[in-house]
Computed example of a mutant assay.
Amino acid sequence: IQKRWRGYYVRKYIHNYYALKKYREAVSINNEIVRKELQKYTEMKENEEKRKDLEKKEKEKKYQARKMHYLLSTEQTAGIYNSPFRKSPHPMELLLRESKPLSHRRQQIKSPFGCELYNWPTCKRPPTFSTAQPLPTIGRQKPQGPFRDTAEVLQQRYKPLEPTLRVAASINSPLEKAREEMKREEWRNCIHDNEFLPFSSFHKNGKYEPLILTSGKYVQETYGVKQFREVHPKKWVGGK
């Protein structure tokens, strides 16, 4: 009896089949409603993004039309968007007709002393320049906290350099230093063996050394030095 009663109680109040069935039906209906709402929200977002893209493209197209307004057709010459071989003009041509050219105007910055400089030539009133008040001095009070004394910090900051032995020692060895010093001394005290004799009178008493052409069999010809005409008596016709 207890077994059957326990089963009846559990099926009716704890694991009720019909209540669970109604709950599942309600959950499925709620899911359908939520799914439809999400679908509508997604479509609305997509339409909004498409509308923003179209507005952005239209705005960019209008800006390009204002920027390229010089391509508009005239009464005498057709533009590149209004070809005579087309039945109707290009949509860009219609947009160029509706848009205005882009203006490039520079903004003039007004000087704060413009009104004062305007009255200078008339000398009606002396120019007055606004002078700002000086800033107050900064108090030299010791800041709160575990900070060291200012004199100690400055002494540590500006203390003399104490290089190590590796930094203080030279890179070159004493032998290389001696060689460099010897080279500099030799270059500084260089003496030439031949005496410098710039005067031409020094060579007057010297003995003349004849050249090979004048001392040998093959001497230099006199043509061009003593005479300027070649003479060949054997070739004369009249025996003169």
Rank of each mutant, 00 (worst) to 15 (best):
L71V: 00
N82L: 06
Y8N: 08
R188M: 10
Y63E: 09
K3G: 13
E43D: 12
A169D: 09
Q39T: 09
Q64K: 10
A169G: 08
P136F: 01
P84R: 07
T137R: 04
K226R: 14
R105N: 11
L213R: 13
N194T: 11
R4W: 13
Y9W: 15
A78E: 01
E176N: 12
K100A: 04
E49K: 02
P143I: 01
A78I: 07
R105M: 08
S201R: 12
M92C: 02
P210L: 02
S215I: 03
S200V: 06
L165N: 13
V219M: 09
N119M: 07
V225P: 01
V167Y: 00
A178S: 07
V153W: 12
K67F: 07
L20G: 04
P91S: 00
S88F: 12
P143S: 00
I191E: 15
F113A: 04
K183W: 11
K124M: 02
I212W: 09
K57R: 08
A65E: 00
R105W: 03
Y23P: 01
E185I: 13
Q108I: 14
P91Q: 00
Q39W: 01
K12Q: 10
M68Y: 15
A19G: 04
V225G: 02
A65H: 03
Q39H: 09
N119L: 15
G79H: 03
N205D: 10
R24Q: 12
Y218N: 05
Q155H: 12
Y218L: 10
R148I: 02
F199G: 01
F228C: 00
P89T: 03
F85H: 04
K159N: 03
F199I: 10
G224N: 03
G206M: 13
L95D: 02
G238K: 06
G224E: 00
K12A: 07
Y23L: 12
T122Q: 05
L117P: 02
E162D: 13
N194Q: 14
R11N: 14
V225Y: 14
K22Y: 13
G224P: 09
N119Q: 14
T150D: 11
F202D: 14
F147L: 10
L94G: 00
S173N: 06
E230P: 06
R184Y: 08
E49W: 04
K142S: 00
K87F: 12
Q156A: 11
Q133Y: 08
T137D: 05
N172S: 15
Y208A: 05
K110A: 14
R140E: 05
Q141D: 09
T137A: 07
N205G: 09
T137Q: 09
A168R: 11
L211A: 08
Q141V: 08
E55C: 04
R148K: 03
P84D: 04
I14N: 13
S83I: 10
